[in-house]
């Protein structure tokens, strides 16, 4: 019984891959928004804001994503807030990615040379204007390669959403294997699809890094 791999199975895997992409997009957008706020909070002149956001980053970075997913799905349900797998996985990834982006981008903001702040200050620009018009445009350039690189981590980490019953690529493979019992073949296909999603992105990241490596010199006063 079980039969052999056919087009319907591949279609099912394709559907799973689309959900992987969709969940990655949710994590990227949600995590990007949270991360942006965290990065700004981490360089805030207000000590309380800095400490709170720092605590958030430490807390999330010290917790496995798997446990955050369990908390979001089973934990909240036990407290009387049942979540759909998509909502639980999306929210968990947003929280997780937000902390990492926040920390990556804080580093990028702080690596814009200090005198750039002073020059903008000396011209009478407000703190918001200094941030928006002088610091962030330079920080974005610095941040692009590591941000694109981290997207690979996001795609791979969405596979953990399978533990809360969300049918993305890894979970689709599992389901098909449960009927075909061909783990090597099926997981090999799953692996190839993950690779096909991730490889172009890491290639892009490496290329950006090389190009920025030249551009970095422009940020430093000679």
């Amino acid at each position: 019984m079980g039969g052999s791999l056919n087009a319907n199975h591949l279609l099912f895997l394709g559907q799973g891959a689309l959900w992987t992409i969709g969940l990655s997009a949710i994590a990227l957008i949600g995590g990007g928004l949270v991360g942006f706020l965290i990065a700004l909070a981490r360089v805030s002149p207000n000590k309380l804001v800095r400490l709170t956001s720092g605590a958030y980053v430490q807390l999330v970075q010290g917790t496995p994503l798997l446990v955050i997913m369990f908390l979001g799905f089973f934990g909240l349900a036990a407290l009387g807030f049942p979540m759909t797998p998509l909502a639980a996985a999306g929210a968990s990834l947003t929280i997780y990615v937000g902390a990492y982006f926040g920390e990556i981008w804080r580093g990028c903001i702080q690596s814009v040379p200090r005198p750039q702040w002073e020059a903008a200050e000396g011209l009478g620009l407000s703190r918001t204007q200094r941030m928006l018009k002088v610091i962030l445009p330079q920080a974005v350039r610095i941040a692009t390669p590591p941000t694109v690189g981290f997207m690979v981590q996001i795609i791979k980490n969405t596979s953990l959403a399978s533990v809360v019953g969300f049918v993305e690529l890894a979970r689709s493979g599992q389901i098909i294997n449960n009927s075909l019992f061909e783990p090597f073949l099926i997981y090999a296909i799953v692996a190839v699809i993950y690779f096909a999603l991730c490889f172009p992105i890491s290639l892009l990241s490496r290329r950006l890094e090389r190009r920025m490596g030249v551009g970095r010199a422009k940020l430093m006063p000679t």
């Binding site: 005198p115 750039q116 002073e118 020059a119 903008a120 000396g122 002088v134 445009p137 330079q138 350039r141 422009k218 940020l219 006063p221």
Partner: peptide
């Protein structure tokens, strides 16, 4: 107005 040793023009 203040001018610094390292110019500090905005590179972007």
């Amino acid at each position: 107005g203040i001018v610094f040793q390292s110019y500090n023009l905005f590179p972007h």
